[in-house]
Amino acid sequence: MVKLRLMRMGKTKQPTYRIVAADARSPRNGRFIEILGHYDPRREPSAITVDNDKAVAWLKKGAQPTEAVAKLLKISGAMDDFAGTAS
């Protein structure tokens, strides 16, 4: 199964994250299929960049987002796009 999840990047105690589509069996910072965006929680306000078209395409294919990624996709508007096309 494919999951949309966060991949930790950056130095020690200075995290930034990539939002990636990855196989559920691969490790957190291991192999991934595609990069969907970036998340920087250290900025004020936190910076989120998501390619909504790619995210919606993966959601249509059945990819399951983690809780954190689902919140980020809701903020970026990708979940609304997906809900609009699903109904």
Rank of each mutant, 00 (worst) to 15 (best):
M1E: 12
M1H: 05
V2P: 04
V2H: 06
K3T: 05
L4D: 03
L4A: 00
L4N: 00
L4G: 01
L6Q: 11
M7R: 14
R8T: 14
M9D: 03
K11I: 10
T12V: 15
P15W: 04
T16D: 08
T16A: 13
R18L: 12
I19C: 00
I19P: 01
I19Y: 00
D23N: 13
A24Q: 08
A24S: 15
R25S: 14
S26D: 11
S26T: 10
R31C: 06
I33N: 02
I33A: 03
L36K: 00
G37M: 10
G37C: 11
Y39Q: 07
D40Y: 13
D40H: 11
D40M: 10
D40N: 15
P41Q: 05
P41W: 02
R42W: 08
R43P: 06
E44H: 08
E44Y: 15
P45R: 00
P45L: 02
S46C: 08
S46E: 13
A47P: 02
A47D: 12
A47Q: 12
I48W: 02
V50N: 09
V50T: 08
V50M: 14
V50Q: 06
V50W: 06
D51L: 08
D53I: 03
V56N: 03
A57G: 10
A57N: 09
W58I: 02
K60G: 08
K60D: 09
K60R: 09
K61T: 07
G62D: 02
G62A: 01
A63F: 00
Q64E: 10
Q64P: 06
Q64W: 01
E67H: 07
E67P: 04
A70P: 01
L73R: 04
L73C: 04
K74C: 06
I75D: 14
G77H: 02
G77P: 05
A78P: 00
A78D: 02
A78I: 05
A78Q: 00
M79E: 14
M79Y: 01
D81I: 08
D81F: 04
F82V: 09
T85L: 15
